[in-house]
Design a protein around this nucleic acid. Structure first.
Lengths: 212, 212
DNA sequence: GTCTATACCCGGATAGAC
DNA sequence: GTCTATCCGGGTATAGAC
């Protein structure tokens, strides 16, 4: 499962992103020094600055790539239609698969305080855009009566919580088997949101046909 | 709601804990300097070291107090009995109320990487104890048939996720109204866990009588 | 584009007077 | 128990040779 890519073929810039994401995930953004990153890549610390203008730019690039992927996925699901429940279910499945297949370790990006640092304005803006897209699906589901008449903010928080827990789950492999099954997380959430939980099987079926 | 305590009467040691928890929450543990804490308290940086041997000890004291409270609450609920569902429901309600009433800002303790730092072995040990107590309630609920036959690890993760989101929710007051209602989070979780969600009203009633 | 050397700052902690 | 002064280590980033 761990992407065992022949490192030799990768450009240094990509290697920096890869190793930085892993170190950030374990030691935090602030806890990771540029020296640590350089050592993991196999170069000297000042060499990093030929590829990135600053440590911050490394994290920004990671954020940009991940948030772009998430936003694209949400827009794709919304465009495909099928109703809020199907769109949300498909997105959650995509998210779990994505988190578990990307070579980058995404934990630091959202579990660390990176997005709270004043200098990461761009990342915050993209994150807001992502949240809005997710929120609009929820709102549509509540208005159409597919979902229970929950507070929209609460529903968003619950989804955020599960997505973050999925990302956190990539930490220790002992707990990994739990939330990693794409259907487990998506199924639990929809059972909690759907007005008629028995519809879940129908949602699953509709999602499967759309996924091809 | 914000505890407006007349600071003058508080011993310096308590003030340090209070301000440190707030700074840790906003800037992270590593991102907060001892100088920042001292400035917030209104003393010079070296004066902190008359009350705590190190910055680490400040965070340790905060962790110790919070985890002790959580462990005590879980043990109390388990001792009171009433079945896994009632015990879990009561604990979740207690947790939400506790998070929102404590003068300390708990975010950094569990959302920051503090518990991952090698030097916080004591906190990690207490956290394991807390997790075990919670897990044993879940296991009991699954075995007795009160809960759905979910993977125990998955159920624990979901509960963790909601509790963490509650703590995170104390961040911006705009989102605070969402998960802060003690019954919202507890109710959502139990609806997702109970084999017969219609039992929720009965659980609520049993919890209410026990709470007096 | 990688290296060595280094400038520069900041943070944690101690010494010692009051 | 608070202060001023200071040490020391570590981290980001730059200069300049190769």
């Amino acid at each position: 499962m761990t992407t065992e890519l022949s490192t030799t073929t990768w450009p240094t810039r990509e290697l920096i992103l890869l190793e930085a994401s892993r170190l950030f995930a374990v030691r935090g953004y602030r806890g990771t020094s540029t020296h640590d990153i350089a050592a993991a890549v196999g170069v000297r610390q000042p060499s990093l600055y030929k590829h990135f203008a600053s440590k911050q730019e490394i994290a920004e690039e990671l954020l940009r790539r991940d948030l772009t992927a998430g936003i694209d996925a949400l827009e794709r699901m919304a465009a495909d239609g099928g109703g809020a429940a199907v769109e949300l279910y498909r997105y959650l499945q995509w998210e779990v698969r994505y988190v578990r297949s990307t070579p980058f370790d995404l934990r630091a990006l959202y579990l660390d305080e990176i997005l709270d640092l004043p200098e990461f304005e761009e990342g915050r803006a993209m994150n807001v855009r992502y949240s809005m897209l997710l929120r609009s699906i929820i709102e549509r589901g509540i208005q159409s009566g597919e979902f229970l008449d929950l507070d929209v903010g609460f529903a968003c928080q619950v989804i955020d919580a599960i997505v973050l827990e999925t990302i956190r789950g990539t930490a220790d492999r002992s707990a990994a088997h739990a939330v990693d099954e794409p259907d487990l997380a998506a199924g639990f959430l929809l059972r909690g949101l759907l007005r008629a939980p028995s519809r879940l099987t129908r949602v699953r079926g509709a999602a499967r046909t759309l996924d091809r």
